[in-house]
Design a protein around this nucleic acid. Structure first.
Length: 763
DNA sequence: ATAGGGTTAG
């Protein structure tokens, strides 16, 4: 009775109460087992004083710690080391004590090894294990092996693992399921699945853990099909699946972005009557995040509140994992406000790096990138200071890339430079390349690339993307060649970038050649995105019929991007009939996007078919689709100045309009003729009068001229594509002023200098 | 004593 009550208290994470029960127990009822259970629970909860207190108390009451007690006490000491220095020594002292008293047996050696493993010091663990076998001449038992192999696994030290495996075979310990499982897992974690499989096949007794180790092993080296096949086999052989099995499969799907499949597996798991735990929920949240399934995410949230989250302020690590998962899910499901609410509701000191990172990442990728940078600087501020990790930096850099925030990106670069981020340097450096090229400084991106000690395929592709966006297609393809010479095999993404570079530089034949050679030369099957690139390539070159024929011959259904590519080519080449057709096909796909309506309206306007323009406009009103407002911004010394069309909110507004008026007058004298058909670019604004001269990019340019030092480049970013009239006007203006004008729009960069633009008309 | 989980780039 009393013991079961104690068990309940332990399960409820209330060691204090459990302890009271224990103390009232008649000594004969109490067993070492319960002491161990209490200590174990206290370790998991991080109640370190309780751990050591319990350890001393049990000895005071005359209970001899057994080989299950020691690992937990030692682990507790090592864990405590993080908080207070010098406690690891205490752990070692306990151990040395044992040795000197001559009772340093296998158990105590195992304990100290386990303590090192638990505290993440795998290499020290292996050293101690070596001392144990060589110096102390102690023969390892099953526990020793099971302790040591995970250390080998985490270090990738497969040759040491192999030796331990050999010993296990010689001593006959392989027969032990625990030992067998540890060996399988070690090979799996060292990515040697064939070895793992050999051991697995030979195991006489297998349990669900053995199978799970194999399933996750396959999943984590990318052989997910094999993992699923094993999972199926587990069904067939009627092996009782546990939460770990299910969670592993759910996680496998989630990691591959197959969120809905993961959700299906979860339903299956529930149907089998299994209760999800923290790990299941965290995997589930990442599935929801990967496909933007807000509703499922909310369901999971409800479940977490009901069954998992400890609302009484018990900040266990598991709770934090779930909360981080939730914030990430809300962020990726475009509910940044909800995510932020959860973030703000947390006790500030309970947030960890991941908490900050997921919030920053959510803003950077799916919401207002400015908020990401604001939060990032808050994280570094004195109130919250937390050292960002490589993930955090990547997220912050993505925000910079989106905004073209060169100054901020450079600050992050400096931070990376000052603090060592060796292990994840390639990742961060790739983000830096992207940041520099999207912020207009492709040459800085090149320098960075050249100085990288290690590169991967993404590094090469990022640089290519940069050159492509800046209209330097020849250089992009040169990098492509260098990449192949360096032994990298281009994948689907690289080929998209190569085609994109051809398309944006007018290298039509080269693009066609790459496209035709894709399968044979690069072993990449053309996907929708490659077809879209080709439609764009042919369309820009005015070969609209060929583009249409290509679409008609596609082996898969064209997605909206394909039709949009055709539609925008129709605008460039004033082809009303084909444009109408593309727009019709686009509307059948029910992807209501404002851009396609604007494009069609522009095609009509260009053909002076005003009635059709009006029809489109009323259609947009009718269906409630609003054109996204165009908006341009310039990074000034004091923050960013943002302009909308006709914007007069800036303090220097009057001055800006004066400069603009003067410029327009001067370029008109040089031969500039306003292209009024583009006035309809902003359909909504037409009613407010002709705002052609007040487009956001023109305002931003005037502001840039007003505030930039002589000769310094003026960098402007626009959220949509630059308007055709603005492009012409800015080209003229670049003849008058000395500054280079670097304008980034939604599709590419334009470098204006001395009356010409780097895009050479391909935009 | 062994297995499963959250954040990043083209």
């Amino acid at each position: 009775m009393a013991t079961s009550l104690m068990g309940t208290y332990i399960a409820c994470k209330a060691p204090g109460q459990a302890l009271l029960v224990l103390e009232r127990l008649v000594p004969t009822y109490s067993t070492v087992f319960w002491w161990n259970a209490l200590i174990r629970r206290a370790v998991h909860l991080g109640f370190l004083e309780d751990v050591l207190g319990l350890y001393r108390k049990m000895q005071r009451l005359g209970w001899r710690p057994d080989h299950y007690t020691f690992p937990f006490v030692l682990k507790a000491c090592v864990v405590a080391m993080y908080g207070r220095c010098g406690v690891l020594d205490e752990a070692r002292q306990v151990f040395e004590d044992l040795c000197q008293r001559g009772i340093g047996d296998v158990v105590s050696w195992n304990s100290i090894v386990a303590a090192y493993v638990q505290s993440g010091q795998a290499n020290n663990a292996l050293k101690v294990f070596g001392r144990m076998t060589a110096d102390a001449r102690i023969c390892p038992d099953a526990v020793s092996i099971v302790n040591t192999l995970p250390a080998c696994a985490s270090l990738g030290a497969w040759s040491q693992g192999k030796q331990v495996h050999g010993f296990a075979v010689r001593s006959g310990l392989v027969e032990d399921v625990f030992v067998g499982n540890a060996i399988v897992d070690m090979y799996a974690k060292c990515q040697m699945m064939d070895e793992a499989n050999k051991v697995f096949e030979r195991m006489v007794v297998k349990d669900v853990v053995s199978w799970n180790a194999m399933v996750t092993g396959y999943s984590q080296i990318g052989r997910f099909e094999d993992a699923l096949a094993l999972f199926e086999k587990m069904w067939e052989e009627k092996i009782k699946l546990n939460v770990v099995t299910w969670s592993a499969v759910i996680a496998g799907y989630a990691q591959r972005g197959l969120g809905y499949e993961a959700l299906g597996v979860f339903q299956q798991m529930l149907a089998c009557g299994l209760e999800p735990n923290v790990v299941t929920l965290v995997s589930l949240l990442s599935s929801c995040a990967s496909v933007g399934a807000l509703l499922h995410g909310k369901e999971t949230h409800c479940y977490a509140i009901k069954c998992i989250l400890n609302l009484e302020g018990g900040d266990s690590g598991d709770d934090l994992m779930v909360i981080n998962g939730l914030i990430d899910m809300y962020g990726k499901c475009k509910s940044a406000k909800v995510a932020r609410m959860m973030f703000d509701l947390m006790a500030p000191k309970s947030r960890n790096v991941v908490t900050w990172t997921v919030m920053i990442g959510g803003y950077a990728q799916h919401a207002e990138a400015n908020d990401a940078l604001e939060l990032f600087s808050k994280m570094l501020g004195p109130k919250n200071f937390l050292k960002p990790n490589a993930f955090t930096l990547s997220c912050a850099l993505m925000a910079c890339s989106r905004l073209g925030a060169l100054r901020c990106g450079k600050e992050i670069h400096a931070h990376v430079f000052r603090n060592q981020y060796d292990s994840a340097m390639v990742f961060v450096a790739n983000c830096l390349i992207d940041m520099y090229s999207k912020s207009g400084d492709i040459d800085a991106a090149r320098v960075l690339f050249d100085n990288m000690k290690r590169r991967n395929d993404v590094s090469w592709t990022s640089l290519m993307t940069g050159y492509g966006m800046h209209g330097r297609g020849e250089e992009a393809l040169q990098v492509f060649d260098e990449m192949r010479k360096a032994g990298w095999v281009p994948d689907g993404v690289t080929l998209v970038v190569a085609l994109y570079a051809c398309s944006h530089t007018g290298m039509v034949e080269k693009g066609i050649q790459y496209f035709n050679d894709m399968r044979e030369e690069f072993a990449v099957v053309p996907g929708v995105e490659h077809y879209a690139c080709m439609v764009d390539l042919l369309g820009r070159a005015g070969r609209l019929d060929e583009a249409l024929r290509l679409i008609e011959g596609m082996p898969m259904e064209p997605t909206p991007i394909v039709w949009v590519a055709l539609l925008s080519a129709c605008r460039t080449h004033s082809n009303v009939k084909l444009g109408e057709y593309a727009a019709k096909r686009l509307s059948e796909l029910e992807s209501e996007n404002d851009g396609s309506y604007t494009l069609l309206s522009n095609i009509y306007a260009n053909a002076r078919r005003w009635k059709d323009v009006a029809r489109i406009r009323s259609l947009m009103k009718h269906t409630g689709i609003r054109k996204r407002p165009g908006c341009s911004w310039v990074q000034g010394k004091k923050g960013t100045a943002t302009f909308f069309v006709g914007d007069r909110s800036h303090p220097l507004s009057q001055k800006i309009y004066e400069i603009l008026a003067e410029l327009i007058q001067r370029i008109k004298a040089m031969g500039y003729i306003p292209e009024t058909s583009y006035a309809l670019h902003d359909v909504d604004d037409e009613e407010k009068g002709d705002l052609l001269f007040e487009h956001s990019e023109k305002l931003a340019l005037a502001y840039g001229i007003l505030t930039s030092p002589e000769g310094a480049p003026i960098r402007i970013t626009k959220n949509l594509r630059v308007c055709g009239d603005c492009h012409t006007a800015i080209t003229y203006i670049s003849k008058i002023i000395d500054n280079e004008i670097i304008l980034r729009d939604a599709s590419r960069f334009h470098h204006f200098r001395n009356g010409s633009c780097s895009c050479r008309g391909y935009w």
